[in-house]
Design a protein around this nucleic acid. Structure first.
Lengths: 240, 240
DNA sequence: CCAAAAGTGTTCGCCGTACACCCATGA
DNA sequence: TCATGGGTGTACGGCGAACACTTTTGG
């Protein structure tokens, strides 16, 4: 059914069309020190060189959007196989003051212990607590707002919290994370019941004693169990 | 902070970048005859000319994504101010066999009574029941699948069902719509309780007698009441 | 022995779900 | 009068929300 590619005259509906610059912008979240953090970078090109910006870049000719996102995140953090999800295509004509640039935003969750600190520092990047973000360029503040909304929406029904924690974590840590995401204090007993009843966590024979004399049990999230339950109609759900 | 635009040498990070064709594709849903329908069109350009396709088009140089979507839908249906929501940016390199084209998909809900039948017929468009769609070109089937998922997700928590019905509708009609969307039969009593308890519908002093001798009361959705309640922490919710 | 964090159960109200009969009316 | 679709109420179980005391142990 496809026409052979050596008949370019058939395709002048394509060739006559406007072409556009396309950027990727990444909202990278981390969790550290009891707070939800955003990774921002000092912009290295004009305009607004030196201002705080999301991590981003242009996409190349033969690169899918997802590949471009992977490349951009890898280059900055050294990380692969992290949680990444497309957020929105931003298409206002004047969103970039220099040229018409469309941007596809992605949000990503990373374990703050895992990234490559050297790469991040060398790039002039920094973690900011989401409660005290610096001014960001262009429509990046709007992107962050959208990403936060999405994170909060997804966080209720998908086990994405674990993407922000080390493989071994304690229940007080996990609760602290949800409290940071939703900016509210949760009841310890209800939270534990809620999380443990889903049967997705395995307690290890090891305690974290850095925060108390008694020590808190380490747990591990079991992704296979999650997949198995999900395929049987189970839905993850946290009451926040 | 912005650099003046008359120093193009500062911006060669922009000018050196690849530029891309960008299309919009619209998944337009309607509800008629007890079934959820999709509007598809016979493609009028090569390649795959004559095959069934979603409604779409390229975006212009000085046109935002949302404006382009409005233009495309208006041209085909004559409708404005309908429910439209961005779905996804599709960026696989080979999704279009002729050229690298990114597509931003949007899904739209229209009242089947309202559109301009002449425009649609003239364009070679047709409504298809979602349970018996024709083969669609490129990655359009995937777009439809995503749109259906999104419609079902949103439909549980936002009053978008009313976008698919005429301003005056009956409760049996509304139930039938939800049954069509979720492909399951619902309990009449529970459904009515659920919907009416939210206090968003106003019963009119008028009955629809086309389907029964007794007649079913007409209702109207009150969007102002919805906005008011929403701003006070109310959440729309249908149990399906 | 004490401070500081970890861990544990019960009660209550609401909401989702299951379920069966009467009503109105035109033909 | 009867066939057809429209309309109504109740009982039960599960889940989210509120709430206070005991346990552990290093210093």
């Amino acid at each position: 059914m496809n026409q052979p590619l050596d008949k370019p005259d058939l395709y002048n509906h394509y060739t006559g069309q406007a072409r556009h610059l396309i950027a990727i912008d990444c909202i990278i979240f981390g969790f550290d020190d009891g707070e939800l953090k955003l990774l921002a970078i000092r912009r290295q090109i004009e305009p607004n060189k030196g201002d705080w910006s999301l991590i981003g870049g242009f996409i190349n000719e033969n690169e899918s959007l997802n590949d471009a996102t992977g490349r951009i995140i890898r280059k900055l953090t050294g990380l692969e196989h992290i949680y990444v999800s497309q957020l929105y295509a931003h298409g206002e004509v004047n969103r970039d003051p220099v040229a018409r640039v469309l941007s596809i935003s992605y949000y990503a969750l990373i374990k703050c212990q895992a990234y490559n600190q050297q790469l991040i520092s060398a790039a002039g990047a920094r973690w900011f607590s989401i409660s005290s973000l610096p001014p960001l360029i262009f429509d990046h503040p709007e992107m962050v707002t959208m990403a936060l909304e999405e994170l909060r929406k997804e966080g209720r029904v998908k086990p994405i919290g674990f993407e922000l924690l080390p493989p071994k974590f304690t229940l007080p840590q996990l609760q602290c994370l949800y409290e940071a995401i939703y900016q509210k204090t949760l009841d310890k007993r209800n939270f534990r019941k809620n999380i443990l009843q889903m049967g997705l966590l395995e307690r290890l024979d090891e305690k974290d004693k850095t925060n108390s004399r008694k020590g808190a049990w380490y747990y591990r999230f079991n992704p296979d169990r999650y997949k198995q339950l999900s395929s049987n109609g189970f839905y993850f759900s946290v009451s926040v």
